[in-house]
Computed example of a mutant assay.
Amino acid sequence: MRFLVFILLFISIDVSAQFAKPGEEYIRSKEGRNVWEKNTIIWHCIKALKADANNQEAVKVCTCQAEQLDRYFPMAKIKKYERLYPHLSLTKLLEEDVALQQRIEDCYSTISQNNLFFSPLQMTTYRDSMAAYIRENTKEKLDESRINSYCDCAVSIMAKRKINAESVKDINDPNSMLFNEIAYSCGGYPYKKISPTHAWKVADSLDVNGSKRIDSVDVITVGGMTKLKVKIGPVVNVWMLDCGATDMLVSDTMMNKLLQLKLVSKDDFLGQQTYTLANGRILLCDVYKINHVQVGKFTVDNLVIGASKEADSFLLGKTFLNKFRRWSIDNQREQLILEK
């Protein structure tokens, strides 16, 4: 992320004749003549960062920036730009000098290696760029009402953790602590999900029907995958138990069979949603509400099932498991333990 915008903010006002004090340090011309008051430059920089004078990181950055200007511009050029651009001479001088822009931006390097979010303006700028990135690079439908709150939450966590310029890349690594802390605290990316996965709540028990409180369901391990029998009406198939999947997932052929048997109707259609499989494949699915899904002695209602022509295995996901108060796998007995 580039921070040149900050220096351009504070130099866009007249800083040549304010806060004059005896013994004031000056930014000098190349020939050594006093031109701009150094403390005024630094003060406007801190103000532009929306920090305060006690923010030592902001003071260091702004002092470094001011010092890059010292003995840099010839006096003749300074006077020329003051005639051409009253009150904006320093801004214009900087806009035309790429080398000086880089030196000014380099002032952030040391600080950002320790704490990237040391000022409120940097937090705001990063939040806005994060929101723009999500909008531009996400294929799934977004919940616009959640984007800003998600980004605010994420940046707040990064600032609290004093994330530096190196570790900020972890925000895109699903295996990192930072990614998962943000997902846990901020609710994951603000996708418009038909069936957001949630933890168990008492109301879920009303969707589980069965005379027993606990049931043990036989499972098998095939190719390292845990599989079990799932019955929907008269249709019985072997499904993969996938606690990393959100909903139930079947092929288009299976969904057509469920529609023909009137186990699902067109009135149950909820829309389309993308699902990301464990191997990284992204499937666009037609999504339906489904009832009467039987596993062992339990029958579960109010589930969500997606159908795609690219689906080869049937998946029983987290929204099914989360209907139960507790569930576990007994590896010794090869059983799924479900507790209503």
Rank of each mutant, 00 (worst) to 15 (best):
P234Q: 11
T299S: 08
K160E: 11
R146W: 01
I163V: 14
E67S: 12
C285N: 15
F179K: 14
L316H: 12
E82R: 10
E181D: 13
D330R: 03
V59N: 05
K323G: 07
D97Y: 06
F314S: 11
E24H: 01
I163N: 02
R161M: 13
H198R: 08
W36F: 14
Y133E: 03
Q272G: 14
F118W: 09
I171N: 08
S176A: 06
L261W: 02
L49W: 07
E339Y: 11
T246M: 03
T319Y: 01
G244F: 04
Q101G: 02
R103H: 13
R127P: 00
D97C: 06
M254W: 13
L178A: 02
Q113P: 00
K227G: 05
C151E: 01
V264Y: 03
I134M: 09
D301H: 15
K318L: 08
E95K: 07
V238F: 04
S251G: 07
D143V: 15
N209D: 11
W239M: 08
E136M: 10
G296E: 10
T299L: 00
V235A: 12
D70Q: 08
C64S: 08
M177A: 10
L283F: 15
A159R: 07
R127G: 02
R213G: 00
K193P: 04
N164S: 13
V295W: 02
K50S: 11
I329D: 01
R326F: 07
K80N: 06
L8C: 03
I46K: 00
D170S: 07
C153V: 05
K141Y: 12
D286N: 15
A20L: 14
D215M: 09
T319P: 01
Y81R: 06
H44M: 05
P234D: 08
V61N: 04
Q65R: 14
V250C: 11
I220P: 00
D242Q: 06
I171Q: 13
Q332G: 03
A245Q: 04
S112P: 00
K266Y: 03
M123P: 05
L263I: 00
H87P: 02
S265F: 10
N279F: 09
E334K: 15
R103D: 12
T91S: 07
I147W: 12
V264I: 08
R325H: 15
A48L: 10
N256C: 07
K289M: 15
A131T: 00
V5R: 02
I182S: 04
Y150I: 05
V236H: 07
K30M: 15
T40E: 05
Q56E: 12
L303T: 02
S109W: 12
R2A: 03
T125Q: 14
K323C: 12
P120W: 11
N172Y: 05
S265D: 12
S313Y: 15
G244A: 04
L9K: 12
L241T: 09
R213M: 04
D173L: 02
D252M: 02
K266R: 08
Y126D: 00
K162V: 10
G224M: 06
N115A: 09
P86S: 07
P190Q: 03
N34K: 09
F179N: 13
R33G: 06
A58I: 05
H292F: 01
K60L: 13
C62I: 03
D286F: 04
T276L: 01
V59C: 01
I111T: 15
Q272C: 14
Y191R: 06
C243H: 10
R33Q: 11
M225S: 09
